[in-house]
Design a protein around this nucleic acid. Structure first.
Lengths: 116, 116
DNA sequence: CAGTTGTTCAACTCTTTGGTTGAGTATGCG
DNA sequence: CGCATACTCAACCAAAGAGTTGAACAACTG
């Protein structure tokens, strides 16, 4: 995998487990054990996922006694969103045109058949 | 890699070559050769990248004689953007709070003797 | 028809990823 | 101290990714 920031972010997001972890962290900080609890997976596997998220800058980690609380960091998400948004116009256009097309067809049908 | 739609989309975006291809396609349809031209990479490699993008639904392909023109499809981008946007409030809040915190600290420094 | 162009398929290599288990480190508590 | 808790590190494995080369297919051109 490429190691530029955007690639790291998207790669980190390309896994349901990691997305679920981020969703959990949106509700506030959590420890590794708390994050691992919902998953049928070893603690070490979760630890690895957290490392991926950390490398992507999506989370940061503190130290409180033997706990390493994780916190969501939004900045890379903002960058990823900004990248995608460069295409927002395009997909809006496309979807907009699709809507128009559907409406056109339905008008057509109504005119011709007198249908609903 | 997980094969749900969102994972496929993010995984497809997690590569600079593929992102560059999408950027190129934002300007309009292109053939495989046209897409491959900027890259120092075999045509077959580009073909593979296109397959990844196609599997993620990010592009669709036509047939014109021996050419297979590619077109950008926005729908998965819209989904990806929507997923990230669920965290927009959080990252805005966080960045906002960070600003406030910095300002608070700086006020503090100025008011007191200047030390932490 | 043969030849050229555009593209894909197949097989191979090398690296990364996502999981495992087992051992090791760090902190708090009796 | 000794022990439990929270977590990480290391080694391993199977599967997937990203690239290569060589061969094949498809459609146009002379």
């Amino acid at each position: 995998m490429a190691d530029d920031q955007l690639s790291l972010t998207f790669a980190a997001l390309a896994d349901p487990t990691r997305r679920a972890i981020l969703a959990r962290l949106a509700d506030g900080e959590a420890t590794v054990n708390e994050l691992a609890e919902p998953f049928d997976m070893s603690l070490q596997a979760i630890s690895k996922h957290l490392k991926v998220l950390e490398r992507a800058g999506l989370i940061s980690r503190g130290r409180q006694a033997q706990w390493r609380p994780c916190r969501l960091e939004g900045a890379p998400l903002a960058d990823a969103s900004a990248w995608i948004d460069r295409y927002r116009e395009i997909w809006h256009d496309r979807l907009g045109r699709l809507d128009e097309e559907i409406q056109r067809i339905q008008r057509h049908r109504t005119e011709e058949t007198g249908d609903t």
